[in-house]
């Protein structure tokens, strides 16, 4: 009897490690090893092949002093994140509220709202270039019809960031799906008793719906901050041949890291930049977790 139990326990040990072996190896090979390597590279001048000279903190010093592009790329990325993260949350949430209306045909509207999200980034990128062409784009024509001043969109440094932010409004359906699921988890009884107490739509919204979806709001906030700071694909396409936009106005950190590593072959410097970005993301994440007292976790799914 005891022997059988011991045997079963051993089988469990063996089986457990065997089943989880892929992910254990994957974590070690594809995350831990490269993360450590990257930190080491950041103290070297390294071309990715043979040349590897130790340079101490010189890469980091260069980021903050000699490299004139650093200020631009960090500023662009932060401005973009500071605008698009809250904008995306608010628009996605409002869209979900609209799509949550109980009305005939609402499913068809939800499909239409979500459609832009499934368009691959590269397709969307070339579409924005055409749509926002200052002469032959449909947006310029709409501006003309409405009697607005002649737009410049991506063609001028002063308007390219605003144009890029504008294009993000088309993907607000991405957040919608998550919010709709969150709304489903709110007990209907809460709304019933609120209605009996005479609460109107907005009272219910601010007293029930929003407070009870704060855990999801927080989750979305953290993931979109982390994701937005590393954004790459739309930028490099909207940014034109150089991937930087007019006068570096759309030059983002991730594109800069890509250029340093794969265009100039400065693997060490690119790694140092990546670690600075990592540090910023880590600090922001800690700050967000420390200031999450506004999040209301309910007892059952806390």
């Amino acid at each position: 009897m005891q022997n059988a139990r011991l045997k079963r326990k051993l089988m469990n040990e063996l089986g457990g490690y065997l089943f989880t072996l892929p992910v254990l190896l994957g974590v070690l090979i594809f995350t831990y090893y490269p993360a450590v390597q990257s930190l080491i590279y950041s103290f070297f001048e390294y071309d990715g092949f043979v040349q590897m000279n130790p340079v101490g903190f010189r890469n980091f010093i260069r980021i903050f002093t000699l490299d004139r592009e650093t200020g631009t790329v960090f500023l662009n990325t932060f401005v973009y994140a500071v605008i698009t993260v809250p904008l995306g949350l608010v628009l996605g949430y409002s869209l979900a509220l609209l799509a949550n209306t109980r009305i005939r045909g609402i499913s068809a509207f939800r499909v239409l709202f979500y459609l832009p999200v499934i368009i691959p980034g590269v397709s969307a990128g070339i579409l924005w270039r055409d749509l926002f062409d200052p002469t032959f784009g449909i947006m310029a024509q709409i501006f003309r019809i409405l009697g607005l001043p002649e737009p410049t969109f991506f063609a001028e440094a002063s308007t390219s960031m605003a144009t890029l932010v504008w294009t993000t409004t088309w993907s607000m359906g991405g957040g919608m799906v998550i919010w709709l699921a969150a709304f489903k988890n709110i007990p209907a009884a809460l709304y019933e008793s609120a209605r009996l107490d005479g609460a109107g739509y907005f009272r219910q919204l601010f007293s029930i719906t929003i407070p009870l979806s704060t855990p999801m709001i927080f989750y979305n906030l953290v993931t979109s901050v982390i994701g937005t700071l590393q954004i790459f694909s739309t930028m490099i396409i909207a940014g034109g041949t150089s991937g930087r936009g007019v006068d570096n106005s759309l030059y983002f950190i991730a594109v800069k890291i890509y250029n340093e590593a794969f265009t100039r072959g400065s693997m060490g410097y690119a790694s140092a930049l990546a670690w600075v970005l990592f540090a910023i993301i880590a600090v922001l994440t800690v700050v967000m977790f420390m200031s999450n007292r506004w999040v209301q976790y309910s007892e059952d799914n806390g």
Binding site: F30, P34, S38, A261, T285
Partner: peptide, 22 residues
């Protein structure tokens, strides 16, 4: 092992891409 797996979510792809390429 589960905790190790979850920790990878904190490490941005920009950090690992250069050594992975190498």
């Amino acid at each position: 092992i589960f905790a190790m797996m979850m920790s990878t979510l904190m490490i941005p792809g920009t950090v690992t891409q250069v050594p992975l390429y190498v």
